[in-house]
Design a binder for these strands. Structure first.
Lengths: 235, 235
DNA sequence: GCTCGTGTAATTGTATACAATTATACGAGC
DNA sequence: GCTCGTATAATTGTATACAATTACACGAGC
């Protein structure tokens, strides 16, 4: 197999380094570690039962993933996300989601198309029932389908990267908002545009969808949630 | 200071790992190592006079940078770029350059504006004189100014990342083409749109500029240069 | 001649030891 | 009480040792 991506994914789940990397990423994204918290090689290593070597290598990767920041001879710190970072990422994503939808229109397989339709109708059902948990799950999956359908490993990885990165923020704001049903309506429109092979419309809708998601997020407390961190970032 | 980017840059130039990383990146981008060539930890370490430890850490970072691919328990290989990768990257860049130009219109400082104007006029001079080397230099610098002017560390780093990544390809095709002067004319238009605070136009022009750059590249032998690699990628 | 094991060499993965740097505690001097 | 310098501890950076895995050579068997 030969996939040469710009950004490689870490697929080595079986080495100690891979396990440390995946677990640390999980822990950071889930909020186990506070923003700006210091991660010490020995402490992490002991906790996971490995030596410093694989921990250090995992640190180097997490640094490039943007989840921690390493200051030479000082230590590794969980990165904070500023309000502006989130905004920038959503604007960038809005562009790339649009491009992704365009490409998906041109390259989606029948199988992917079917799953996308199923996703939308299933989400419609859960929206009526008020199942927010399932709705959030299907929301994530919809975008993954879209990413895979665009037929570009590079774009797919870019978008998954961004998506994962803002999960920390989304986790706090999306679940309790009533955006779920409206979000799914937009998914439905995107899906239909792709099904109709209308690339321009699909791009435009996917683009706007991301902007709407961001603006909803801002309305529902992004500012309050990150005001504190803004002040932290001054240290 | 507090810059929390999505993708962190490797700034630690003074540690052995940092030196190995920078030198290896340089060597890969400059073409010292062939595509798909295997990099052995011990050989690299001996060549640079360091042990395997900093080499391994540099490898992990280069992997995430997308310059090498590490197969567990096998080795590290210089990544190949397929024709499609290059196309995808240019399309993604065209989107983000547009966004970047928009943001630059809103946030550019007087100092940056001045440097951009100077860049364009200086390039005009070198274009007339046929100084292709300086023209290429100024071309790169123009885009760096644009990236810095957009006032988004995240977007700036994304674009610099992509830019660097395709340098390997550009090196082969841009210098000998007569795109230089035409490219600079487009720079001038972008610069003027930014100066006139016309964000829509700046975005549109920067977007098209990147597409033109790609299409010119294709015309001037990208296909031939990478046909060979396409077949390689099947192994 | 070809395929398939087997043993050895080469290479990567991990742990540990040591060096260099940074953080901290504590007391002298004011 | 406060500042500063110094000694000590803690932590990161690097080198080396050892373990595990993989690549390769070579010969047995067909």
């Amino acid at each position: 197999m030969s996939n040469y991506n710009v950004k490689q994914e870490v697929t080595d789940k079986y080495s100690l380094r891979g396990r440390v990397f995946n677990r640390l990423r999980e822990d950071i994204l889930s909020g186990k570690y506070e923003e700006h918290e210091e991660l010490k090689e020995m402490a992490i290593g002991e906790e996971m039962g490995v030596s410093r070597t694989p921990v250090r290598e995992a640190f180097r990767q997490l640094e490039l993933e943007g989840l921690i920041q390493i200051i030479p001879n000082r230590g590794a710190y969980v990165t904070g996300i500023t309000e502006k970072d989130v905004r920038d990422i959503y604007m960038i994503r809005s562009m790339l989601e649009g491009l992704c939808a365009r490409w998906a229109t041109e390259h989606i397989t029948q199988e992917q198309m079917d799953e996308m339709e199923e996703n939308v109708y299933l989400a419609e059902f859960h929206a009526k029932k008020g199942h927010l948990e399932q709705l959030a799950e299907l929301d994530n999956r919809f975008h993954d389908i879209l990413y895979e359908a665009c037929n570009s490993k590079i774009l797919e990885h870019q978008l998954k990267d961004f998506h994962q990165y803002v999960l920390r923020v989304r986790r706090k704001t999306l679940a309790n908002a009533n955006r779920g049903p409206k979000s799914n309506e937009e998914h439905k429109q995107i899906m239909e545009a792709i099904r109709d092979r209308n690339a321009d419309l699909a791009e435009q809708l996917a683009h706007q969808h991301m902007i709407n998601a961001y603006e909803n997020m801002v309305k529902n407390g992004l500012h309050e949630a990150y005001e504190r961190d803004e002040s932290h970032s001054g240290k």
